[in-house]
Design a protein around this nucleic acid. Structure first.
Lengths: 154, 154
DNA sequence: GTTGAAACGCCCTGATG
DNA sequence: CATCAGGGCGTTTCAAC
């Protein structure tokens, strides 16, 4: 993982439609070794996938909420039930196990408050939770999937 | 935006490398009309971009934090300063204007706690903030950029 | 690492029904 | 919408340096 690899990552995080020729040009390489590097980055799991990003508003999914959850107990069986429960809920796009107050933080995407309420009922009926605190986003001010890769410093 | 459009979105959100032939097959269309739909979804801004996703651990960016911020005042000038301030900080991958307690919620990605601390100092030195509360993620339990598109119900 | 080239698949366009 | 046909681009592999 050197400077050129990081350049490749930076470019592909911004635009995965970039052709190999243009990518190679931008990172200062010819096509063949550039292609080999991209392959390696994919095979070693640095680049995990290539996806299309969709505007939530355009598909009527305007409500994003962050839901902080505290577990009822901290047994392995609760964890399993939690894992199974959230697996079936497509509205949950992210799950983070947290340090501090809450045990988990969920990012939840729904159509509107009514849909969120339906989700909330399902969540609290499915799982045994000590506490659930929902915070609602009014506006997505900034959003990127690109990780802050520093090209220069390793 | 009909059933087929939503199917296309679902597929491309999962895997943007899908060839047109296979995509067309999966959504039950022939290539030409499928291609036209994809074009339209891109031109109308439903599909905003295609990106490569990177494993944070693999690039030594293992620390994700959620930072809740309250503004010093709620003037337009503060907003401007805020917008300018966060624009230069690559560690901030998401900014949400929130309802409730905090004014903004930031998702911040850094290498480790030392890097986060450096970021934190920069943040609090750059901006006038009433309060800043950081919560740290221990584990990314689930993560997807795919919005929960329902194929059947509009 | 570089260049050059070949083979193949895929994208994209057009015509037709 | 489907199908067919074609040109051109891009990916992928190989050879040689």
């Amino acid at each position: 993982m050197d400077r050129i690899d990081r350049k490749i990552i930076v470019e592909l995080q911004r635009d995965a439609t970039l052709s190999l020729a243009r990518l190679a040009d931008r990172v200062g390489l010819s096509q063949t070794p550039c292609w080999k590097r991209v392959q390696k980055l994919e095979q070693t799991g640095v680049i995990t996938r290539r996806v299309a990003l969709v505007d939530p508003q355009m598909v009527s999914l305007g409500l994003t909420a962050f839901v902080a959850i505290s577990a009822n107990d901290h047994s392995p069986s609760w964890r399993e039930a939690f894992a199974r429960g959230i697996a079936g809920m497509a509205e949950i796009t992210e799950v983070w196990r947290m340090a501090g107050e809450a045990d988990y933080l969920l990012k939840v995407v729904t159509r509107d408050m009514a849909s969120f309420d339906a989700f909330y009922r399902r969540l609290t009926e499915t799982l045994e939770l000590k506490s659930v605190t929902s915070s609602f986003a009014m506006e997505r001010v900034a959003y990127t999937t690109a990780l802050p890769i520093a090209i220069d410093e390793p």
